[in-house]
Design a protein around this nucleic acid. Structure first.
Lengths: 208, 208
DNA sequence: GTCTATAACCGGATAGAC
DNA sequence: GTCTATCCGGTTATAGAC
């Protein structure tokens, strides 16, 4: 039905994307070879360079596939909360799309992106996150009018750090705590933690 | 004076450690070759395998060199705070050693470690962090007696996530915000955020 | 669009001279 | 302890048959 793209549910291109995001998340971008990916995807090695031009473009395509829908849903949720959102609504708009969208296979990959400064800033933040940060900063400003803009920026960074850490290590928390990992429950705990952090009184500035 | 080790302030072994931690932080473990390291350190390629047995052992040595002193200081600060620490003292013991110790060159590396699940769990968490997490969990329990142990574990993870994210991206925040990055000031903002998060009311458990 | 084969190069590790 | 030279395998990317 669709005219130009994605006709088959599991064509070569999609299989490569799925395999790559799984292996990149497990072992990192540099430790994962195109051979690993094409073996996992059960496609030919040359198919990667045919469908994507290079390994770097493949990485960009994976990031775009997952981050786009999440950020659109985040903005939608902020819009739905209206001009005077509560702190809880802002936190919910930040976290919930990660649970609702079909991004679960990409979850371990998020930490890889966030901890790679050059990749993150040049190919993720500027392209996919800058406008979202701006929108969330406005929303926090509406929910907490007394909070300075600079403080809002940093608290968003703190939120992003907790969030990416939980997602990055979600596969290994059972090894750390001995407890099974319930993503939705932990996200609920995180929401309470972040809402309280956002409401923290602004620390007194240091004297020289 | 010291009998067996570290006689010269800048011997081959130290030069390798310094160069490796710098390049690992900049580009990641897998993207940094031993050749990159020995070139940066201005030592011979074979020196790495002579002083360390392998690249993997070199990574372990770097982690141990920085994480050991930080964690010892953290425990000392918790001990100094006595059996009934405040939430602020716990947060301070968690963050301050990262600013006080000579770990600044290793700062960008921290994100690399935290976002690499297998490396983190097997070679960092179990060896260097498990007893620290236990000690901090006790301290949080003393500061906030009403907080369940499971919640303490997760809030420590949220704290670790924010902390590692700030350190990992500290070199690129100026590119993101247009503002210069003042590590101590941001750590102060983070301390206020985390203390409030620790004090958050426990979220009601979800019904089935 | 999909394959095989290969080019051109880089990786960690080590042997052995000094 | 430090060097050179090298082994051996893996890497991305592409050329060209089908």
């Amino acid at each position: 039905m669709m005219s130009t793209e994605a006709k088959a549910p599991s064509d070569t291109k999609t299989r490569i994307l799925d395999a790559a995001e799984k292996l990149f998340g497990l072992n990192g971008f540099d430790a994962t070879s195109l051979r690993d990916i094409t073996t996992e995807a059960q496609v030919n090695l040359a198919a990667v360079n045919y469908h994507f031009q290079s390994k770097e473009s493949l990485i960009d395509a994976i990031i775009e596939r997952r981050l786009g829908p999440v950020n659109r849903l985040r903005i939608e949720m902020l819009d739905a909360a209206g001009p005077s959102p509560t702190v809880e609504q802002v936190v919910e708009a930040f976290l919930a799309p990660l649970l609702m969208m079909d991004v679960l296979p990409a979850v371990p990959l998020i930490g890889r992106v966030f901890s790679n400064p050059s990749l993150f800033v040049e190919r993720v933040y500027k392209k996919h996150l800058l406008h979202v940060v701006k929108r969330f900063s406005e929303a926090i400003g509406a929910a907490l009018p007394q909070l300075p803009a600079e403080e809002r920026f940093w608290r968003l960074q703190f939120m992003a750090g907790s969030m990416s850490h939980v997602l990055a290590l979600s596969g290994v928390f059972p090894l750390m705590s001995g407890q099974p990992f319930d993503r939705a429950a932990v996200m609920g705990r995180l929401a309470a933690f972040l809402a309280a952090g956002l409401r923290a009184p602004v620390a007194a500035l240091e004297e020289d």
